[in-house]
């Protein structure tokens, strides 16, 4: 019987949605392998969160509480997560492929003499074992990989796995771990602008390029993003020009996003940009050049000047929201 451990990501004392995706994916795999799903909650005070994982089919919740674990430290957290994996004799260890997970899980693997499939978008069970699909070259290529280590470890890309409710009563266990002193210490966490959503987390991403004509016009994109409950992104050209911070860049040397709706405004669609957003469910392009490559991947396109089309789009969506 297989045991799958999901290392939960706690930020600001909360379990984010990416965890529910990971629990759901683990549950689905566990069903195929006739196994159990466990999770470990790591922090200074986590017992208040213990009821949540059971909603998504998690059978067991390990709690590791220590004042020194209040903020993320990759080395201390890795030691704790590895101890949890040993305690459970885990066959699989998963985490969301977030900034935290992508740093933490390879460390956990190192401590367990295991290997990691990073940023996995799909898993399937074959006779010979689990096959993990992960993008390479920013999504231009998909690789099917197999792991021969025990445990097998993988980070799961946000939004690639659907959340499935599957309520069970989870057993809780407080695990006492000798927490090593953190070598790298987080002193402070700053959020950019009023707790705005990150492009990688948003269901709707509104991105702008050169066609926005200047950074002073970005408020239009922000207004549209806010109307749709989304986040704003940017092309490499405008980040290089200093219009927007690099944290918003979508593309091969920026972030990879897969929202439900991606609206590209004044972006021509260079290969390096397409690589970062092609897995979006619906793509809308607004560009004045009818031959722009972005139209080849867009579900819906409008040929026109971004600065003329965008205000109208905001107006029409406001109208729609007022009606519904």
């Amino acid at each position: 019987m297989a045991t799958i451990l999901v290392v939960s990501e706690i930020r600001n004392g909360q379990l984010k949605k990416v965890n529910f995706e990971a629990y759901s994916a683990a549950r689905q795999l566990a069903d195929q392998l006739n196994g159990d799903v466990a999770t470990v909650l790591i922090g200074s005070s986590v017992s208040g969160l213990s009821d949540i994982p059971g909603k998504y089919g998690v059978n067991k919740v390990l709690q590791v509480e220590d004042a020194s674990l209040e903020k993320f430290s990759p080395d201390a957290y890795a030691a704790v997560a590895a101890e949890a994996a040993r305690h459970l004799n885990a066959d699989f260890v998963f985490m969301p492929a977030t900034a935290m997970g992508k740093d933490l899980l390879p460390r956990v693997a190192t401590l367990l003499n295991a290997s990691t499939a990073q940023d996995v978008i799909h898993m399937r069970v074959e006779d010979s074992g689990v096959v993990y699909t992960r993008p390479m070259f920013a999504g231009k290529i998909l690789a099917d990989v197999k792991l021969t280590s025990t445990p097998q470890t993988a980070t799961l890309r946000p939004k690639a796995f659907a959340i499935q409710e599957n309520p069970v009563t989870a057993a809780t266990e407080a695990l006492s771990v000798n927490v090593p002193q953190a070598k790298a210490v987080v002193e402070e966490v700053t959020t950019s602008g009023g707790g705005k959503l990150d492009v990688t987390e948003a269901d709707v991403v509104v991105s702008g390029g050169r066609g926005m004509k200047g950074p002073e016009n970005w408020h239009l994109l922000e207004e549209l993003a806010e109307l749709l409950g989304g986040a704003t992104g940017a092309s490499r050209a405008v980040v290089d020009a200093g219009w927007r911070p690099h944290g918003e860049q979508v593309g091969q040397t920026g972030k990879t996003v897969s929202p439900t709706l991606y609206i590209a405004v004044g972006i021509s669609g260079a290969i390096q940009h397409l690589a970062g957003m092609l897995s979006s469910k619906y793509i809308v392009a607004i560009n004045k050049d009818p031959d722009a490559p972005i139209f080849k991947v867009a579900d819906y396109g409008i040929v026109g000047d971004a600065m003329e089309v965008l205000p109208r789009l905001i107006e029409e969506i406001k109208k729609l929201k007022a009606e519904s």
Binding site: A184, V186, V189, T190, S192, G195, D198
Partner: peptide, 9 residues
């Protein structure tokens, strides 16, 4: 990090 930064010493 997602939507912000961590200052680490």
């Amino acid at each position: 990090i997602e939507g912000g930064h961590e200052k680490v010493t």
